[in-house]
Simulated assay, not measured.
Amino acid sequence: MKRYAGFIALGLLSLAALWLAQEKPASKGPATDRQTTAHPPPAGGPQQNRNQQNPDRNPAPQGTGFDFYVLSLSWSPAFCASPEGAGNRQQCGGDRRYGFVVHGLWPQNDDGYPEFCRSSEPDRVPDALGRSLFDIMPSMGLIGHQWRKHGSCSGLSQRDYFSATRAAFDAVRLPQRIASGAEAATLSADAIETAFTEANPGLSKRGITISCGGGRLEEVRICLNKDLTFRDCPELDRKGCRANTTKIIPIR
């Protein structure tokens, strides 16, 4: 019996040793899992997340009392070549070399638009505020007029309205081949719209219209929701230029 007891004890010790040997590799599992989950995500991941979050970090002030905006971008060389622009020294004088500038951010309704609304804000735009916009809106006369006629109908303060104006300008990617103004060009109105829609995913030809006069490109008008995302506005699109040849005056 003692001999059998010894065999049994030896067998139990062997089984215990085998069990411990199998457990050591298994104990590395959780550590390996933690290391795997700590690996950084693919290179594009964090950047994509930041890009998605940026609009939410600094959203443009949203107005009230209208349906959507029209961002009107004026082609400055055409304006400066006109009788009206010839006397505008801030935008057209000296070494001014502007391309697309903001004509205005216009509150618009599905049927018509408000203008010259009553506001608790003053009519005059302070110099300090106005001149901070000169890189995209280079004239105090233009800035003051746009506030009185359109900004006063936005439901925003002067500061918030012009903050929304800058944000709207920044929301649109200008097609380089046109915006550079390096040389004179002749394009159809449809080709100009195509250049803008190709540069701006989400913008359709039903949400943009071209203004032309005397065979020249004058303005590009783009419809935006209050959060400055693109939207269609067929009633505005129907009024746009349909010229087959539109001259784009170069920046001089």
Rank of each mutant, 00 (worst) to 15 (best):
Y98E: 13
D95G: 12
P114R: 11
Q108C: 02
P107S: 12
D95V: 09
R96E: 14
G99T: 07
D110W: 13
N109G: 06
G99Q: 05
R89Y: 08
A86Q: 15
V102Y: 01
G99A: 11
S120Q: 06
E115N: 13
G93F: 10
A86N: 05
Y98L: 03
S119W: 10
Q108T: 11
P114F: 09
N88C: 03
N109D: 07
W106P: 00
Q90N: 10
D111R: 10
G104H: 08
H103Q: 10
P114M: 02
Y98M: 02
S120C: 04
Y98Q: 05
C92F: 12
D110N: 14
N88A: 03
L105A: 02
W106T: 09
D110M: 04
V102T: 01
V102E: 01
V101T: 15
R96G: 01
G94M: 05
E84R: 15
V102I: 15
N109K: 09
R96D: 02
G85Q: 10
Q108P: 01
V101C: 04
Q108K: 14
A86M: 13
R97W: 01
N109P: 00
C117N: 12
G85A: 12
R118K: 07
Q90F: 00
E84L: 15
G104E: 01
N88R: 06
R97K: 15
Y113D: 08
C92A: 08
V102Q: 00
R96S: 15
W106S: 04
R96H: 11
H103A: 13
N109R: 10
Q91C: 07
G93H: 05
G94P: 02
